[in-house]
Design a protein around this nucleic acid. Structure first.
Lengths: 137, 137
DNA sequence: AATCAACTGCAATGGAAGTGCATTTTTAGC
DNA sequence: GCTAAAAATGCACTTCCATTGCAGTTGATT
């Protein structure tokens, strides 16, 4: 169990109050969040800072970006063992069309996809849309 | 082999000069196109008209929308047998990160995806990114 | 030909992503 | 502890795409 500070330092991310707060916010969420979500949670902070903070997290590999088809980029913390950059490790995402939440199904790996001859696959984005467990019950 | 007019009429889309031209344009393309692509091809026509025409095609089920992760919506004609609205019929898309083209791999169906208990899957979006056949050779 | 509905074009809006620059905070060297 | 450099933050602004309201035009029906 590492502290947030240790996580950030291990990834060469300098520690600031802002970053600790944003990390904490992301860690508390069980769903992927938009920049606006973060913005609403930190009304005192500037959007640019939040934007760049998340980008930094992404560059350093502790956050991954999700394109769930809503047209708005969402972000989620990479969990332990999430190697977003490795093709074979990609997990899939579930987007609830009722509550509009997007959830990482970390333990649901994407099956091997065959592509035609001559095509080279580098990355796979798989989003399942439907009704989530909370909305269907 | 149906004429474009027959296709449109069979889907309850009224025939106009604009629509015939746009349909023809889409049919000639082997890749998914953005609204801007269409706009460039028809400089005399207004963006709004093109936008609404494509939306109409989409509503009536002769065009499907593709979100390939570039952040820009792309469109492609549904081919014969493409029932976009039916989950099990969804095909996958390939986005070339070199030439930026997005191709429908119509005959590559998406494998059955299992979701956790309580989740109801209605739709699946699968985009493979990499290098296309033309760019890799 | 007239009427009504549908289509088209122009203008404007809104949302999100991204950038340049000045200011503040943090780090590191003395 | 103080100072200079580097990094982070905040503000203003821009751009791009998607979308809508409304007026004018075209097309279908009688």
């Amino acid at each position: 169990m590492n502290t947030i500070e240790e996580v950030l330092e291990s990834k060469d991310i300098r520690i600031t109050a802002m970053r600790l707060l944003i990390y904490k916010f992301l860690a508390e969420k069980e769903v992927a969040v938009t920049l606006s979500d973060i913005e609403n949670a930190f009304e005192k902070a500037d959007r640019t800072t939040l934007y760049r903070t998340v980008k930094t997290f992404e560059d350093k590999g502790i956050v991954h970006q999700i394109d769930d088809g809503t047209g708005i980029t969402k972000y989620a913390l990479c969990e332990k063992g999430c190697n977003c950059e490795i093709e074979t490790d990609l997990h899939l995402h579930f987007h609830c069309i009722n509550c509009n939440k997007t959830i990482c199904l970390t333990d649901h790996k994407i099956p091997q996809i065959k592509v035609p001859d001559g095509f080279v696959s580098e990355n796979v984005n798989l989003v399942v849309k439907g009704i989530c467990d909370k909305c269907s019950s």
